[in-house]
Design a protein around this nucleic acid. Structure first.
Lengths: 179, 179
DNA sequence: ACCTGAACACCGTTCAAGT
DNA sequence: ACCTGAACACCGTTCAAGT
């Protein structure tokens, strides 16, 4: 295991266990038993460490979404992953993506399943992606009232987009059948 | 104008002009021609200043959304306000809300119009709110590809929710009419 | 090749002291 | 009542020096 990997591992551990405030170069160095300036022999700076964590998060998220068979599955998998790795999700979603330091394809892999399930309509895929992100973001930030039924909001979202999908696929919409 | 108001004004100016990194207690004090520790005679801490800015933002956003006549209007007003005040939006949406320091009603006022236009269905209102937030959040974070048609994504979102609304209102949905 | 100590330019905040 | 200077416990980062 390279020294860089050790550093990123320690960063992930600190982030997930103690929150973003704990991920400082000095704390990180202490975790490896060295001094802070020594880190710069293995990493160009803190941004690089963040980029590495963003890449790990996107790769894991992509893997979690991959098996989804429909929008409901996808929504569920998205929410579950985010709730399991809230700090990692926040780091990846709320902060600027260090795109130049991401391996090619990592970003699109995460959205591939989504685009596929949106019938190839990129605009709808983006709206859905944003909606899922928004729901997770608001939930993680504790923006919903105390007893709010977050799952019901997800259901409402999936319902809205499912119906549109049905429509544009030309499928029969049960709500359209007249008795 | 109270000293507190002067401080918050300076904070808003710094935030909007130079970004969140510029809003430090030392910089803020310099802006008022005093030393940093003196600020603590007028404010309990930096969190209080942030809470004050969040309150201003929510109040302004609520006012911007108030005249919206339909979902399309609302979506447009939401996006426009966020793009006009990106730093303020980020401060309010991405960081924990200092709820205990917000005047009562400020938060619900911002969402009142949304709930009204969702036909009173809170779950749909939350999904829509989250979707709007997500679209703005991703746009501000430059998460969409270079030439992405963000407006088209908004249109897709409004379309999805408009149709559901039509349905549940029992109105005739034009796409359901058979020739 | 890897690490250290000292330093630089910053943070938010506390506190005794001054007017 | 309002402000200051010095201090505390932190940041990310640089750099000459050591092994």
């Amino acid at each position: 295991m390279s020294r860089l990997e050790e550093i990123v591992d320690a960063a992930q551990r600190l982030l997930e266990d103690e929150g973003p405030g704990a991920v400082s170069m000095r704390r990180l160095a202490a975790e490896l038993g060295i001094q802070a300036p020594s880190l710069y022999k293995h990493v160009d700076g803190k941004d690089r460490i963040e980029a590495e964590l963003q890449e790990r998060a996107l790769t894991e998220l992509a893997a979690a979404l991959q098996p989804a068979a429909d929008l409901r599955d996808l929504a569920h998998a998205y929410r579950q992953w985010a709730l399991l790795h809230p700090r990692l999700y926040e780091l990846t979603a709320r902060r600027p993506l260090h795109r130049d330091q991401l391996r090619d394809g990592v970003e699109t892999a995460a959205s591939a399943r989504l685009v596929a399930l949106s019938g190839g309509d990129v605009d709808r895929a983006r709206a859905l992606w944003a909606a899922a992100h928004g729901l997770v973001d608001l939930e993680l930030a504790h923006r919903f009232p105390e007893g709010a039924d977050v799952q019901a909001a997800w259901d409402a979202l999936v319902a809205a987009f499912d119906r549109v999908a049905d429509r544009e696929d030309g499928e029969l919409d049960p709500l359209c059948r007249q008795p």
